[in-house]
């Protein structure tokens, strides 16, 4: 199952990104291999902090996160891979601005819990694990849990004015004033 090159991250619109993922057996060797693939893919996408299995093309409940390089991280469990994760506690709701590797070019303001508790299983042993996270790690885990439910951050944007393009600093062609006899130029559709 493990290939030479890390799997590419799917970008929206893609049906796997809007489809709820299925629970899996954490001790299944195929799940263990997929966990390794997910982690390998995450390592290629840094400074991004997390990935969910649907983002690399497999609709199962498996997520990976690592906020160790994020400058605003507080809690930091290092590289985390969780099978069948579920949110069991959340508090301290705050507005944040987030983006996603699967939604390139856009960010948006959402409301997320700043302190959470997530339970899941470790790939391979299937041991139950409880993770308490705050700040960036909490945001990252909630974002990945949403992927398992077929949700994108776009589905949580708080209001119309909270959807933002990522500023690319690209120069658009200069505008010229149309002559009165000509219709105004129209770009795009």
């Amino acid at each position: 199952m493990t290939g030479d090159a890390p799997r590419a991250v799917l970008t929206a619109p893609h049906p796997l990104l809007t489809t709820p993922a299925e629970p899996v057996d954490a001790t299944d060797p195929r799940v263990v291999a997929l966990a390794a693939e997910l982690l390998a893919a995450l390592r290629t996408t840094r400074p991004s902090t997390g990935l969910a299995a649907p983002q690399i093309g497999t609709a199962v409940r498996l997520i990976a996160a690592d906020v160790s390089l994020h400058p605003h991280a507080r809690s930091c469990a290092g590289e985390v891979v969780l099978v069948n994760p579920r949110l069991v506690a959340a508090s301290g709701w705050r507005a944040v601005r987030e983006g996603c590797l699967s939604v390139p070019g856009l960010t948006g303001e959402t409301v997320r819990a700043s302190e959470i508790t997530v339970r899941g299983e470790l790939p391979g042993s299937g041991d139950a694990v409880t993770l308490r996270a705050d700040a960036v790690e909490a945001l990252c885990l909630q974002h990945q849990l949403d992927h398992l439910d077929g949700l994108l951050f776009l589905d949580r944007i708080v209001e119309a004015s909270a959807l933002h393009p990522v500023w690319q600093g690209l120069a658009a062609p200069a505008l010229t004033r149309p002559r009165p006899s000509q219709p105004a130029p129209i770009r795009g559709s």
Partner: peptide, 17 residues
């Protein structure tokens, strides 16, 4: 009462109040 329409790659996203 308010509307944003944006494109990100092939994605078309619209948020409306």
């Amino acid at each position: 009462t308010a509307l944003s329409v944006r494109r990100g790659g092939r994605l078309h996203a619209m948020v409306a109040d």
